[in-house]
């Protein structure tokens, strides 16, 4: 597989970000509802319904309610969803159906800047969701401060990782229906098996090993560790994993998109 070298990238990528931001702002009343209400639904379902069965349990020497255990994971999942769905369905529509990138290529922007703008926007959506959800969850006293403030940079880092992952899918799928495949094979398993709803230690050894390969596992570990003040040395490794993941996948995503669009 031969990939083109990257063209120089300038501040102009922010123009693409700005376009998406302004449209988001126009519809903010609708856009704000899901991240605000979603945690309420989960807290209701798990906190009231499921917690009765699960009760409290011990994690790293602390006794936690089940609601408190899953609250950070909800934010991590939102980080994944917001970035991934932005750079898959939404970017695909802009690229393929709305010909937005075609129009932008006739301006001083180059394709690298357009794609980077989309990726940054995907990460921004993760950040917005994190702020809204995190704020709502904090009202219930489920997060510990100041550690929970680390969710802000984590949202951006995690957002970039999943935005890049989504964009790679966009560069490779033949049509918009095909996104079902990476969702079924990647996103849904991560949602379930990344230490989100139960500690990884509950899994058999081989599955724990597999889970360590998933980016969401590391994002959940970082978000939970920070938001609940459950610090551990393993968090440094998780941080390193996400940094390397982003450093590799971001340029790859841009290159694959350039290859897809320019021919």
């Amino acid at each position: 597989m031969k990939l083109p070298p990257l063209a120089p990238i300038s501040f102009r990528c922010l123009r693409v970000w700005q376009r998406n931001f302004e449209i988001y702002r126009q519809n903010w009343k609708i856009s704000f509802v899901p991240p605000l209400l979603e945690p309420l639904l989960y807290i209701l379902a798990f906190g009231v319904g499921l917690a009765v069965m699960v009760g409290e349990f011990e994690l790293q020497g602390r006794t936690l309610s089940y609601t408190r255990f899953i609250a950070p994971a909800l934010v991590a999942v939102a980080i994944m969803y917001n970035a991934f769905f932005e750079t898959t369905y939404n970017s695909f529509v802009r690229m393929y159906y709305q010909k937005t990138f075609d129009a932008l290529l006739a301006t001083p922007l180059n394709l690298e800047e357009i794609i980077l703008g989309e990726l940054l926007w995907g990460a921004t959506k993760s950040l917005i969701a994190t702020l809204l959800m995190g704020g709502m969850i904090s009202l219930f006293g489920l997060f510990d401060y100041p550690g929970a403030l680390l969710l802000i940079p984590l949202a951006l880092l995690g957002g970039l990782c999943f935005a890049a992952f989504g964009m790679i899918c966009t560069a490779l799928v033949p049509g918009i229906e095909t996104f079902n495949l990476p969702i079924f094979l990647g996103i849904t398993p991560m949602f379930l098996f990344s230490g989100t709803f139960f500690p990884l230690q509950n899994l058999p050894g081989w599955a724990q090993g597999l889970a360590q390969l998933l980016p969401l596992t590391h994002l959940v570990a970082l978000v939970r560790g920070s938001a609940l003040h459950l610090w551990s040395g393993g968090m440094w490794l998780s941080l390193l994993y996400l940094l390397v993941f982003a450093a590799l996948l971001l340029p790859l995503a841009i290159k694959l998109m350039v290859r897809r669009i320019l021919h």
Binding site: D102, A103, A106, T107
Partner: peptide, 17 residues
């Protein structure tokens, strides 16, 4: 880049936002 800032293109297919 400089060239593109001095031209205007109306594509065959609609690419309005």
């Amino acid at each position: 880049r400089q060239i593109k800032s001095r031209i205007g293109v109306c594509q065959q297919e609609d690419s309005l936002d």
